[in-house]
Design a protein around this nucleic acid. Sequence first.
RNA 1: UGCCCGAUAGUAUAAAGGUAGUACAACUGAUUUUGGUUCAGUUUGUCUAGGUUCGAAUCCUGGUCGGGCAACCA
Length: 555
Amino acid sequence: MSEERSLNFIEEIVEEDIRNGKNGGRVHTRFPPEPNGYLHIGHAKSICLNFGLALKYNGKTNLRFDDTNPETEETEYVESIKEDVKWLGFNWDNELYASNYFDQLYEFATNLIKKGLAYVDDSSPDEIAAQKGTPTEPGTPSPYRERSIEENLSLFAEMREGKYPDGAKVLRAKIDLASPNMHMRDPIMYRIRHAKHHRTGNKWCIYPMYDFAHGQSDSIEGITHSICTLEFIPHRALYDWFIDQLEIFPSRQYEFARLNMTYTVMSKRKLLQLVNEGFVTGWDDPRMPTISGLRRRGFTPASIRDFCDRIGVAKRENIIDVSLLEFCVREDLNKTAWRRMAVLDPIKLVITNYEGEGELLHGENNPEVEGGEGSRDIPFSKELWIEREDFMENPPKKFFRLGPGLMVRLKHAYIVKCEDFVKDEQGNIIEVRCTYIPESKSGQDTSGINVKGTIHWVSVPHAATAEVRVYDRLFRSEDPAGEDRDFKELINPESLQIIPKVFMEPDLATAQPGRGYQFIRKGYFTLDKDSTTENLVFNRTVTLKDTWAKEVKKG
RNA sequence: UGCCCGAUAGUAUAAAGGUAGUACAACUGAUUUUGGUUCAGUUUGUCUAGGUUCGAAUCCUGGUCGGGCAACCA
């Protein structure tokens, strides 16, 4: 039933390559995270693209950690990345590390030295920066640029042996100091870092730079389509140059525009700041755009995959409306979440003419599915909690809820009519008094009465309680990273609202972790990892679409 | 002032010289025991100026605007 979809520009390239028999029609991609932070929704776009291509064209995808900078990388990040990729629903063909190739990379570097295409430079970082010139002026040669091959070879070996301190020397490619592409002006290939690496330990004290690791790793793995983001476009010339000079498998690099989303920051650096400076509780704070944050918030893998599918892949800078993500998760949860009732901001409703102990009513788990996926019992009694906002002393014309003399249906129960209400000394409504229509019982209504509104409720004596965490967008600005101010000043102070005691139907006391629940009329919720059997904690994933709220706003 | 990308409704994304379409958002209305869902519909677009062509979002030229490029980060 899949409707014909047009190809994105990368799929077009891949199909063109297959048609031409390039690489024997083989398609091999890779997802290459640096293990220096947690994955976010922007990475999900790249993951879906890379793994999606392999799935679509019967190819393979490697998970390769780009771990060439021991100072920022940690095993914790490796583990979280693996968990997130798996959770999104993808299986990699090989788990690999750029650090696997350190020996090979060292050989490659030596080869270039032997060809007179690389040299050891003793210049300081400042001197090298100065030697690069500016975009409009050519660079100038380092005084060490013309060292002999033999000298370079032995110096480079000494660098590896640990004879020099950090920063004393680097290995540079000898390319073109006048190139209009700054990246071709004798880029650094290796630097000295006496740092322990999370995988190779203290074996190395020289580490390759991105440009001398990424393309070579692609090539070693036989990657056919190396897909990265737009900022690497100027690196492509270098990527190709190294492959040409080394005469190794010609992987090809293609660039697409990274994902940006409204009301969100997406750089790992900024997300790290939010974590380190305590603006959020961690990488998996449900307000974070990280995969782990979204998971904890209650987003489903299917909804994120669907989102990535809908946003498309192109080369133009973009900023996706976060409401699309919300739409995707609502669409998925609407079909899968079990319906339950919970009252977040309670007032009491007393049914004055209801006699007896109460009764057990029934509600199907999921009205979107044939058969409702079974049902649960809902205890009903004379005293109920209802939502404060479902009663108004002086309701406007189109208010289909409770008010003096107004009737509503209690979901899965009876129609009630408001007869009276009670206020406290401050004038707050604390109780609504109603009569019910005994013949209006849900499913066997013979009353003939039609009411416009239905509200949710929870029986007072039977109610379970839980903490509910209500989230709003983390930033007040549509483009927090794009404004002049520090993005942290734009944090929404109301991004988290904790409701310590919410009344809910007792069935929710046995809610299952990882399952989505729709609290009828209030939104989608899921159990938080802080939840215990004694103290339930729910996160609000997303609200329901609320056309009434819009109506109210308009006045 | 150099080089490199890019420009289609509010936001994204199609149309490979031949009817500018789709999704989200917004707005109407119908249905509804969730003001949810579903359904029907409406509004809104090819950066600009020339050129090629029977015909241009698409090809060519100039301009405008936006973004990127000078980490021992990736």
